[in-house]
Each structure stands twice: as structure tokens, then as C-alpha cells.
């Protein structure tokens, strides 16, 4: 089943065309890695999928239901389908770890507080943060903050989780602990779209890899196809900068 469907998406900022007729389908349980140079439109694609940017043209659908951008209810319903993990976490600094995770399910989804609490504790336990429930974001390392933000997204029970360069703000050691979490989510067949510069990780965890450049999808396929036998010269050229793949 298709969880996310983006069709013929166009987006430009002033005179700069950032997305030129991009289409993307993500099926349930699929892990898609989006790679490409800076400015290729990867992040803009995620921001359009999560409504942080409006599209100039094209259609976005979640679970087969096309989003009507003129209707708030339609947008709000679609928002219930996805979660987004940011590059720089964007945790709420004035809330404790527990409150960061629990607040949206309780205030936005109006779910039962004790049920949400149970879920939050389970998530924190799973992400190795069981002892940090009462800490504030400023007391955590970057890796811990990113794991909290993953827990915050998961607590909304999304059908699909987007990651916008989730490890770009972290040093290699902290990157490892965050990748470990994403890897375990992949094993549980969480549907995910991951924008990343971690090529080895993309290759290992993704079912499908998309290479973007200049606002278009240059090439896509299985990690083996894209990394080992890239058909496009531009892909080869880009991958040459990453050794040891």
C-alpha cells in the first residue's frame, strides 16, 4: 500500500527552481534514502512532504488520500500520518524529556494521559533514555537529544517517519547511537524517508536509494544498483567523493 505519494511536484524560491517535476511513491514498510549534493532539493522535498513549504504545483497524498491544501481539516488529517525528525532536533527547551514526548499526543491528539505516559516510557526505554525522563534538553548530549526527538515523533504513531539529515549536527560517535536507533526502526519495518549524507548507512539500511541533483531525481534503485552500478554519469561523479563504499 502506498503511504506517501507525491506527484509532479514543482517548487521554486524567487527565481530558483528547487524541485522540478518530482514524483515519489513510498510503500508501507519501505525505507527510502535520499542522497545528493547540498542544494539538490532533498530537504525541500521533505519540507514539501511535511507542509513546511507549500508546493507550487503537484499533488501530495497520504494513505491514498490526496491533500487539499485549501482545507485545514485535510492538512491536519495528513499531518497525523507523518512525523519529522530535524537536523538540529528542535526539542522544546522548556519542557522535560517526558513532556516533550507526551505533550503533542495529549494536547493535539487528545489521547488519554496515562496511556501516552506508558507509551513514552516504553519509547524512552527502547531508545536507551529510560534514566533521562526528567532531564531538560540542555542537559543532554546531541545524540540523546536526537533520540528524544525521534521518540517525540514516534509517540504520535505516525505511518511514515521523515528524517532530515538526522546526524549532520552530530560528531561520529553520537552519529553511531542515532543510526543504531534508525536501524532498529528499519528492522521493525517502520516506513521511513531518510535524507542523509551517510552513504554507508544509506546503503545498509535502505530498500531504495534516490539520488537527487538540481531539483530532479537523477537515479533511483536498490542500494546495489545505485551504489555499485550507477547508470548516470552524474551519480558516479557524486559517489566518487565517497570512498570505501
Amino acid at each position: 500500500m502506498s503511504v506517501l505519494s507525491m506527484k509532479n511536484i514543482f517548487k521554486s524560491f524567487q527565481n530558483l527552481d528547487v524541485l522540478k517535476d518530482i514524483s515519489l511513491e513510498v510503500s508501507e514498510g519501505e525505507v527510502v534514502a535520499v542522497i545528493g549534493p547540498s542544494g539538490s532539493g532533498k530537504s525541500t522535498l521533505l519540507r514539501c512532504a511535511t507542509f513546511l513549504e507549500s508546493v507550487d504545483a503537484g499533488q501530495v497524498a497520504y494513505l491514498g488520500e490526496a491533500v487539499d491544501f485549501r482545507k485545514k481539516a485535510s492538512i491536519q488529517r495528513a499531518k497525523g500520518c507523518f512525523g519529522l525528525v530535524f537536523q538540529n532536533f528542535n526539542l522544546f527547551p522548556h519542557y522535560s524529556v517526558l513532556k516533550n514526548i507526551m505533550d503533542a499526543p495529549v494536547t493535539v491528539q487528545k489521547r488519554n494521559k496515562s496511556e501516552v505516559y506508558q507509551q513514552a516510557i516504553q519509547l524512552l526505554d527502547k531508545l536507551g533514555l529510560a534514566d533521562r525522563t526528567d532531564a531538560y534538553p540542555c542537559q543532554l548530549s546531541g545524540g540523546q537529544q536526537q533520540r528524544v526527538s525521534i521518540a517525540r515523533a514516534l509517540a504520535m504513531n505516525p505511518k511514515i517517519l521523515f528524517f532530515d539529515e538526522p546526524t549532520s549536527a552530530l560528531d561520529p560517535e553520537l552519529t553511531g547511537e542515532v543510526l543504531k536507533v534508525i536501524r532498529s526502526l528499519a528492522r521493525e519495518h517502520m516506513t521511513m524517508v531518510i535524507v542523509t549524507h551517510e552513504m554507508a548507512f544509506a546503503r545498509e539500511v535502505a530498500d531504495r536509494v534516490i539520488f537527487m541533483d538540481g531539483g530532479i531525481i537523477v537515479e533511483e534503485g536498490t542500494p546495489k544498483e545505485v551504489f555499485d552500478q550507477p547508470r548516470q554519469e552524474r551519480t558516479r561523479q557524486f559517489l566518487r567523493n565517497y570512498s570505501g563504499l
Binding site: 512525523g83 530535524f86 528542535n90 526539542l91 505533550d103 494536547t107
Partner: peptide
């Protein structure tokens, strides 16, 4: 980023302002 995080989590405008 604070507005964006709240937006993605589905907070309304008023909730975002007064809670976050």
C-alpha cells in the same frame, strides 16, 4: 525550528504561541 517542530506535531497557531 520551534515553530516548525510545533507545526509538524499538529499544534494550532494559538497552542504553538502560548505553549511553545
Amino acid at each position: 525550528g520551534q515553530y516548525e517542530a510545533a507545526n509538524v506535531l499538529g499544534y494550532g497557531k494559538g497552542q504553538t504561541f502560548f505553549k511553545i
